[in-house]
Measured scan of single mutants.
Amino acid sequence: EEKRQVKQVAKEKLLEQSPNSKVQVRRVQKQGNTIRVELELRTNGKKENYTVEVERQGNTWTVKRITRT
């Protein structure tokens, strides 16, 4: 359940930055209360990979860091 929520948060964050792209989740890793989500962003056939680190704060998820990989 929490992985599902985190995927959603990570996707939304990337789509905010580039709204007309397609996002696909590649991998989800958990480390303590930080969850790392690896995503693939496609814009006009151009692929970019991103890693989004999401942290739990109380009962909400906040995006800590977005890295292009």
Rank of each mutant, 00 (worst) to 15 (best):
E1V: 06
E1M: 06
E1F: 04
E1T: 08
E1A: 08
E1N: 07
E2V: 10
E2N: 04
E2G: 04
K3Y: 15
K3F: 15
K3W: 15
K3Q: 14
K3I: 15
R4G: 06
R4H: 10
R4C: 07
R4D: 12
R4E: 15
Q5L: 11
Q5A: 13
Q5M: 10
Q5T: 11
Q5R: 13
Q5C: 06
V6H: 02
V6W: 11
V6D: 01
V6L: 06
V6N: 01
K7D: 06
K7F: 15
K7Q: 15
Q8A: 08
Q8S: 04
Q8Y: 03
Q8M: 08
Q8T: 06
Q8L: 08
V9P: 01
A10R: 01
A10P: 00
A10I: 14
A10D: 00
K11V: 15
E12P: 00
E12G: 03
K13T: 10
K13L: 08
K13M: 08
K13V: 15
K13C: 07
K13W: 06
K13Q: 03
L14S: 02
L14G: 02
E16R: 03
E16G: 04
E16L: 03
E16M: 06
E16D: 03
E16P: 01
E16S: 06
Q17W: 04
Q17T: 10
Q17N: 08
Q17K: 09
Q17M: 15
Q17I: 15
S18Y: 15
S18P: 01
S18H: 15
S18W: 14
S18L: 05
S18F: 15
P19A: 04
P19I: 02
P19D: 01
P19R: 03
N20R: 04
N20V: 02
N20G: 15
S21F: 01
S21N: 02
S21M: 02
K22H: 07
K22A: 08
K22G: 05
K22S: 11
K22W: 08
K22V: 13
V23T: 03
V23L: 04
V23C: 04
V23P: 03
V23Q: 01
Q24D: 11
Q24C: 08
Q24H: 13
Q24K: 15
Q24E: 13
V25Q: 01
V25F: 10
V25G: 00
V25I: 08
V25C: 05
V25E: 01
R26V: 12
R27Q: 07
R27N: 10
R27Y: 10
R27V: 04
R27L: 06
R27P: 01
R27H: 12
R27T: 08
V28W: 07
V28N: 01
V28P: 01
V28Y: 14
Q29N: 12
Q29W: 14
Q29T: 14
Q29A: 12
Q29F: 13
K30T: 15
K30G: 14
K30V: 15
K30E: 14
Q31F: 13
Q31T: 14
Q31D: 12
Q31A: 11
Q31N: 13
Q31H: 13
G32R: 04
G32F: 06
G32M: 04
G32H: 05
G32E: 06
G32T: 04
G32P: 03
G32I: 04
N33L: 09
N33V: 06
N33T: 13
N33M: 10
N33D: 13
N33H: 09
N33C: 05
T34M: 11
T34C: 07
T34P: 03
T34S: 09
T34H: 09
T34V: 13
I35W: 15
I35A: 13
R36V: 13
R36C: 09
R36T: 09
R36I: 14
R36M: 15
R36S: 13
R36Y: 15
V37D: 00
V37M: 03
V37Y: 01
V37R: 00
V37C: 04
V37K: 00
V37S: 00
V37H: 00
V37Q: 00
E38G: 07
E38R: 09
E38L: 12
E38W: 14
L39G: 03
L39T: 04
L39W: 01
L39N: 00
E40C: 06
E40V: 11
E40M: 12
L41A: 13
L41K: 04
L41E: 02
L41S: 10
L41Y: 02
L41P: 00
L41H: 01
R42W: 15
R42G: 06
R42Y: 13
R42A: 09
R42C: 07
R42I: 14
R42N: 14
T43D: 12
T43Y: 06
T43P: 02
T43N: 09
T43R: 04
T43V: 05
T43H: 10
T43S: 10
T43E: 14
T43W: 05
N44T: 07
G45W: 06
G45M: 10
G45I: 05
G45Y: 11
G45C: 06
G45N: 08
K46H: 11
K46E: 09
K46F: 09
K46Y: 12
K46M: 11
K47I: 15
K47F: 11
K47S: 11
K47Y: 08
E48Y: 04
E48D: 06
E48H: 04
E48I: 04
E48T: 05
E48C: 04
N49S: 09
N49L: 11
N49D: 11
N49I: 12
Y50M: 03
Y50A: 07
Y50L: 03
Y50R: 01
Y50N: 00
T51P: 00
T51M: 11
T51R: 09
V52H: 00
V52D: 00
V52G: 00
V52K: 00
V52F: 02
V52P: 00
E53Q: 09
E53V: 09
E53N: 04
E53W: 12
E53Y: 14
V54P: 00
V54S: 01
V54M: 07
V54T: 03
V54R: 00
V54L: 08
E55Y: 09
E55A: 08
R56P: 04
R56V: 04
R56E: 05
R56M: 09
Q57V: 10
Q57F: 10
G58W: 06
G58N: 11
G58M: 08
G58S: 09
G58Q: 11
N59A: 10
N59Q: 12
N59T: 10
N59F: 09
N59K: 11
N59S: 13
T60E: 14
T60I: 11
T60D: 14
T60R: 07
T60Q: 12
T60C: 05
T60N: 14
T60W: 09
W61V: 04
W61I: 05
W61D: 00
W61L: 11
W61G: 01
W61F: 14
W61Y: 11
W61S: 02
T62E: 13
T62H: 08
T62M: 12
T62D: 08
T62N: 11
T62P: 01
T62K: 10
V63T: 03
V63S: 02
V63P: 03
V63W: 01
K64P: 03
K64I: 15
K64S: 14
K64H: 06
K64L: 14
K64A: 13
K64Y: 08
R65Y: 08
R65A: 15
R65T: 14
I66C: 04
I66V: 13
I66H: 01
I66S: 02
T67L: 13
T67E: 10
R68I: 11
R68W: 05
R68D: 05
R68Q: 13
R68E: 10
T69L: 10
